[in-house]
Design a protein around this nucleic acid. Sequence first.
DNA 1: GCAAATAATACGACCGGTTGTCTTATTGTG
DNA 2: CACAATAAGACAACCGGTCGTATTATTTGC
Lengths: 198, 198
Amino acid sequence: MAEKNQKQINRENLLSQGVALLMAQGYHGTGLKEILDAVNIPKGSFYNYFGSKENFGAEVIQHYIEPFIQELSGHMQNNDGNALGALARYYAELIEGAEKAEFKGGCLLGNLMGEISDTSPLCQASLQVAVKRYRDLLRTALQQAQEQGTIRTDKSAEEMANLLVDSWQGALLRMKIEKSTSPLKYCIDNLLNDLFRP
Amino acid sequence: MAEKNQKQINRENLLSQGVALLMAQGYHGTGLKEILDAVNIPKGSFYNYFGSKENFGAEVIQHYIEPFIQELSGHMQNNDGNALGALARYYAELIEGAEKAEFKGGCLLGNLMGEISDTSPLCQASLQVAVKRYRDLLRTALQQAQEQGTIRTDKSAEEMANLLVDSWQGALLRMKIEKSTSPLKYCIDNLLNDLFRP
DNA sequence: GCAAATAATACGACCGGTTGTCTTATTGTG
DNA sequence: CACAATAAGACAACCGGTCGTATTATTTGC
């Protein structure tokens, strides 16, 4: 029974390394062998865990977004009646992380949307699900802030969630070429502390 | 001397096909052979025109952005004292183009920022230049609209240009996975017709 | 309860094809 | 004929994926 878990462990290791390597080098820029070597699993075994590279990619996408959803959920659950503050603290953490990563990586979802959503229907569908989950969470947070009077109500929470996601993605891309987190800082400051205010 | 031109013509054809194929399949998803075949240039000849694939990529980036700068410049030059209107019409054209392309492609700059800016310093630098040129043009347009009283002045034109670029890039990514131009429409409508207004 | 039969998984060599790049040969031109 | 520009083809490395086999689990028969 410890062996039954081993398969799950191997799968998880592959997915984690997949996240790291796809973030750093992109989908087509990363070979399966590189991922397999990193977790010491032989080449021939890959297809015991995943049906294909494309299938693997679709699972990597879900494995990537999960921690972000958990983290954001956590911030929203124990905020002391200040949803906007919790949201701001969450993004401050993300910015800190981006600095520690030396402006590399950005968001795997954004990178893969650009690279393979046109050529891989499977990954496109996976990206759609992942983004929707994250966006819904953000919408709920903004809705809560609206009810608390810290965010304007003449614009729907959904619309603002979309704008926040889009601007953040664009800011991450600009961070990658300008090697600076100031696009991220300006993005969040402009939206949360100004344009979204009542 | 007709021969001297031929080399330039071949270079341009390679760059144009490069734009098209990199847009559709990404940098690592497109082989040199595919590009060369499309313009009937033998594989062995590639290095007569470009030093390497990476070098080629950096030139493709500049070749891609040029028409956009020309188009936007054109719109801004003959606007009848209505810079904001010209900007809105420009984006309306882009949205129309995105629909005709069936939501595929998006922006080559955005796609490549995500895919290779971390691994190719050459392309990163090229992207930086291309984005800056485009962003400066947008800033000038917004500045003009500010002077005409159609855009708020309590926020700098540069900040708004950044926000516009970022949101647009994010909206393009979401267009690619949702197969719809409504992210683009909402993005432009929210910014130009609402949040940026005085 | 033990052994034989069967199923499931792990594995590394290997598939045909393609990658970006480079060396060598050929071509065209002054 | 000299000389540069172009093309041909070779090159090793690598790609995603498949193969038969070896090892390990599980089920079956008695």
